[in-house]
Design a protein around this nucleic acid. Structure first.
Lengths: 242, 242
DNA sequence: CGGTTAATTCAACGGCCGTTGAGTCGACCA
DNA sequence: TGGTCGACTCAACGGCCGTTGAATTAACCG
């Protein structure tokens, strides 16, 4: 493009939160909340679970920094203070909402069953199923969104990659250049997740799992067991940063 | 590190204890700034350029939302108001700081010179050189970081991919399934950028360009000109979500 | 049926942020 | 030499945010 850098992001502080919907009486100083009367609610409802649901959605939609406790509380239909009553602080809430069952060796267990020639396809399929199973997708999108601007979320993504992708893969196949191979696989899978789940780039976003396994599996297979050229012969790379 | 879901990101915005209230009417009320005296500075310095530099760094380090005008001003050694004096608002500043020379067809021009069999390697090399040339790396990291939580930055990433990767590639090679091929290439390249430049995953982050071209080029080549299986035969693409 | 405990809201505090308007000072031109 | 204009800072406003402590109400247990 030329030199017309004009407009870029977002309004001053604008965000379309949930509606305030204040009740009858007026005059609370800060903001209006649910409008319910005070005290414990009758009946049983899983309020805590509702908060976790709402938090997961908000974090997935906006990332850690931009998601607000007030917004989460509004989405869950409760007062913001209740959120902190249950979870202590925003960071703790993030941790509880985003935590998901990591089955560390699931990828590689399938791979072993698939045999050495099918391991690329098995890794891709396992990755896709992991993302699209249950609540994982929302949680992982939230994690990926937050990781870009939040150090601890980034550390958690690293942990996810290391524990769920790199570790099992390099351990199972005791090949030379295991770490390089693992990060190459990781780069393809993370890129796939970004375009398919976060940005929703279109032919990729609605392709079937089968088609993706067919399209991407061979490349992953090559990263795992193929010839990578003279890359990382073992001796002379990584003068890198600290 | 950090096994339990317990502690997660960011320092609490919490109290620091002392400093009960601001004084009567002397002393700067908001925060202390550079301490320079008021009025125009003697000599000539490229203050505007310094602000742009600082903004680029801050946006790259924290993303759009978390970077602050006050922080940028402090890094540039000026008053926050001067930043707005030059750029109007934060969004405009982001646009000016992040804008970079897009040479739209650079990727494909090299590719044409490389011949059909070397196009994968040429695309990868061109991508790496584009990222590592001049200020592009900081700017692109800033863009990628911001894109996760900012719609306009995301749109700009989409534009970058479409204009610089997908568009040229699909136009040059008039192959069937051009869009699928282009997004597959994009997924590999974006994933590579994430791990190499944003998270700094280690064997990948300090590998040489040559090694990466050798390692990744063939996969990209296959996405561009190879057989992708039964993927996207043209008729029946998934009813999909949403 | 009284007392304890947990769930829930209310009201507010202090902090950082983007933005603004008014003022001060140096460079430059006639 | 005086005036204009742009560079630059100061001080503040209003807003949203995370967090807190006290008050209120329902469930639960003996």
């Amino acid at each position: 493009m030329s030199a017309a850098p004009g407009r870029v992001p977002d309004g001053p502080r604008g965000r379309t939160g949930a509606e305030p919907r204040r009740g009858a009486l007026d005059g609370p100083s800060d903001v209006a909340s649910a409008g319910q009367h005070t005290g414990r609610r009758p009946g049983e409802g899983d309020t805590r679970g509702a908060i976790l649901e709402a938090a997961c959605d908000e974090f997935a939609a906006h990332g850690f920094d931009r998601a607000t406790i007030r917004g989460i509380a509004a989405a869950a239909g409760v007062d913001p203070a209740l959120v902190l009553h249950y979870f202590g602080c925003k960071a703790q809430l993030f941790g509880d909402a985003i935590s998901f069952p990591v089955e560390p060796a699931a990828v590689v267990r399938r791979s072993a069953a698939a045999g050495i020639d099918g391991i690329g396809a098995a890794v891709v399929r396992s990755f896709l199923e992991g993302w699209e199973e249950g609540q994982n997708r929302r949680r992982l999108v939230a994690l990926l969104r937050s990781a870009m601007t939040n150090d601890v979320a980034l550390a958690r993504v690293r942990d996810y990659l290391g524990r769920r992708i790199f570790g099992p893969v390099t351990r199972e196949l005791a090949l030379p250049d295991g770490e390089l191979r693992a990060t190459l696989v990781g780069s393809q899978l993370i890129g796939l997740a970004m375009l398919r789940y976060v940005t929703g780039s279109e032919p990729l976003a609605s392709a079937s799992q089968d088609d993706l396994v067919e399209a991407i599996g061979p490349g992953v297979q090559r990263y795992l067991t193929g010839d990578l050229g003279a890359a990382a012969p073992g001796g002379e790379e990584r003068a890198g940063r600290s």
